[in-house]
Simulated scan of single mutants.
Amino acid sequence: MPSPAAYERGREIARKIIEKHVEEQGNYPETVAVMLWGLDAIKTRGESIGILLELVGAEPLKEGTGRIVRYELKPLADVGHPRIDVLGNLSGIFRDSFVNIIELLDDLFGRAADADEPESENFIRKHALILQGQGVQNYSARLFSNPAGDFGSLVNDRVVDGSWESGDELGKTWESRNVFSYGRKDKGEARPEVLTQLLQGCDRIIQEIDSVEYGLTDIQEYYANTGGLKKAAEKQRGKKVNTSFVESFSQDTTPRNLEDLLRLEYRTKLLNPKWANAMVNQGSGGAYEISQRMTALIGWGGTADFTDGWVYDQAADTYALDREMAQKLREANPEAFRNIVGRMLEANGRGFWLPDADKLQQLRELYELTDEKIEGVTV
């Protein structure tokens, strides 16, 4: 990986990311975080790797059999932009399945960090020299993941349990779980100084969506990992970090903003009457799917500050305050219904949503009624 087609698509996506940043900020991004997920890489044959290679200004070098044996740095004159530094965030599946690719990428970053090129044209070298001057070992480490043999950022665990006070705590959780470096020498060594510098300089985050079935609002992994990285970078930088997604199953390679995609997904799924009725008619499983998406809504509020009140308003009207819908959900899966209403109350408690007093009181009564039924309380 990447395949020739994946490499070209990745290059196109990376160039659009760079152009978008220059258009918005007036300068080149110095560091871009690229999410490297295993299933994405398998389905696209390495499109995310193609994005990374274009940012760095490199290309695959093949032997006679067609096997890629090296990622070669292209001459700066042929790149068309400075070498952009990269924070490569590896999913557990990518980390464990593609050791050879990780080692090739690590070798690439090492050569880029030591290249005899101006710092203004090679941000990898620029940042590596700073770390080297501080006596940091393995200053070219750029591939980070969870502890060896372990999986997940634990951000979603904290959101599900409600055991967090601020988004900064979620960012800190992500950082503590992703401080482990992988490459030719590192096999899970903690490199906090390197990760901190990468987060402090992170200008943008880019990720691919590989499925038409599951998007940002459907599963916990997106807010737990991409959202967690975003919050960690914003905490280190002290300002917003733009996050973009590309649909790998579409011909369109235009990166789309996180907030725009969230709004689109909530309109087309959670708040779509056809989707809602289809879920309710599925019984217990459908109620669970609705419940999961309400938890994810809280997760995006904590990690990406997504607090559009209209989403909560319409969700409350659709699933809790519609008597027929609420009755079906409660009968099909009382635990899921309690979570749906509980997440609405949690959103109010965290300041994500400010409903009118009457609506809030109705939700509280619904929650108490459902909780008493589950616990078997009788008056």
Score class of each variant (00 low, 15 high):
Asp322Arg: 01
Leu271Arg: 09
Phe94Val: 08
Asp305Phe: 08
Phe94Gln: 04
Lys235Val: 12
Leu170Arg: 13
Ala113Trp: 07
Gly162Ser: 06
Gly26Arg: 07
Leu143Arg: 08
Gly376His: 09
Leu216Asn: 14
Asp96Gly: 05
Pro118Leu: 13
Tyr266Ile: 00
Arg343Ser: 04
Ser145Leu: 03
Ser140Gln: 03
Val56Thr: 06
Glu63Leu: 13
Arg323Val: 01
Leu216Met: 15
Gly286Asp: 02
Asn225Glu: 12
Gln25Thr: 11
Leu129Gly: 00
Ala315Glu: 13
Asp116Pro: 08
Val22Gln: 12
Lys185Met: 00
Gln200Ala: 11
Glu63Cys: 12
Leu199Ser: 00
Glu24Val: 13
Phe249Gly: 04
Asp40Cys: 03
Val246Leu: 04
Arg142Val: 06
Lys239Tyr: 15
Ala320His: 00
Arg177Tyr: 14
Ala141Asn: 08
Arg338Asn: 08
Ala6Phe: 10
Ala141Ser: 14
Asn138Pro: 01
Gly309Arg: 14
Thr268Leu: 14
Tyr28Pro: 13
Asp107Cys: 08
Ala224Val: 11
Ser284Trp: 04
Leu129Cys: 04
Arg142Trp: 02
Arg70Phe: 13
Gln200Leu: 06
His81Trp: 05
Gln134Leu: 14
Glu165Lys: 15
Ala6Arg: 06
Gly283Phe: 04
Leu90Cys: 03
Tyr312Lys: 03
Asn27Lys: 10
Gly57Ile: 14
Gly57Thr: 14
Gly286Phe: 03
Ala233Asp: 01
Asn122Glu: 13
Ser181His: 07
Gly283Leu: 01
Arg142Ala: 03
His81Thr: 14
Tyr7Ile: 06
Pro255Ile: 03
Ser91Gly: 13
Leu270Val: 12
Ala58Thr: 08
Gly64Met: 09
Leu195Arg: 02
Arg67Gly: 11
Lys240Cys: 03
Gly238Asp: 04
Arg343Lys: 07
Asp356Arg: 10
Gly183Asp: 00
Leu129Trp: 04
Glu8Gln: 14
Ser48Thr: 10
Leu366Met: 05
Arg15Asn: 12
Leu170Lys: 08
Leu76Ala: 15
Leu262Asp: 09
Ile49Glu: 05
Ile340Leu: 07
Leu264Pro: 00
Glu103Cys: 08
Asn257Ile: 07
Arg67Ile: 15
Asp260Glu: 11
Ile130Pro: 01
Glu54Ser: 14
Ile130Ala: 12
Ala332Ser: 12
Pro118Ile: 14
Ala315Gly: 13
Pro355Cys: 08
Glu208Ile: 09
Val377Tyr: 15
Leu104Asp: 07
Thr243Phe: 06
Leu258Thr: 11
Pro82His: 12
Glu24Asp: 11
Leu261Ile: 13
Ala5Lys: 10
Leu363Tyr: 02
Gly167Gln: 06
Tyr222Asn: 15
Val241His: 06
Val136Lys: 04
Ala115Thr: 09
Asn225Gln: 14
Thr378Arg: 13
Val246Thr: 07
Lys231Glu: 05
Glu12Ser: 12
